[in-house]
Structures are given as structure tokens and as C-alpha cells.
Amino acid sequence: MDWMKIVSALALIMFIIFLFPRARDMMKNSPKGSSQDWLSFAIPIAAIILFIALLIQLV
């Protein structure tokens, strides 16, 4: 239904507008991560990608 698409898009745009100041604030004030920090983030994310690939094989 077209009206559902329009309502969905409007809701998402409102959500983006609401979140934008918070995102800008977090960008300014978040501490910088070292390469070791980013590696500790990348490892579980890589594990999740492999896990989802496994789930796709199972379905």
C-alpha cells in the first residue's frame, strides 16, 4: 500500500532528524579508539558474519 510506504518513510525521516543532534554530539565527544580497540571490535563482528553464514546454510 502506498500510504504505508509514505508513513514508513516519514517515520524514518523523523527518527533521523531526532537522532542527528545526538549522533553529532557522540561524534565530537567519543574517545578515540586505538588499533587494538578496533581489533577487539572487529573480532566478534567477524565471528557474527561467520555465524550468519552458518545460519544461512542451515535454513
Binding site: 524514518l12 527518527f15 533521523i16 537522532l19 542527528f20 545526538r22 549522533a23 557522540m26 561524534m27 565530537k28 565527544n29 567519543s30 574517545p31 578515540k32 579508539g33 580497540d37 577487539s40 571490535f41
Partner: peptide, 18 residues
């Protein structure tokens, strides 16, 4: 581990996905 450094990255990524 302290993952507070992810805050800005995740919020910007989320906005781009939206």
C-alpha cells in the same frame, strides 16, 4: 573492555542505514 570509543561510529552508521 571499554567500548565507549564506538559511540560516534555506531550512531553515524545507524543514521546512514536509516
Amino acid at each position: 573492555k571499554d567500548f565507549s570509543f564506538l559511540g560516534g561510529f555506531l550512531m553515524v552508521g545507524f543514521l546512514l542505514v536509516l
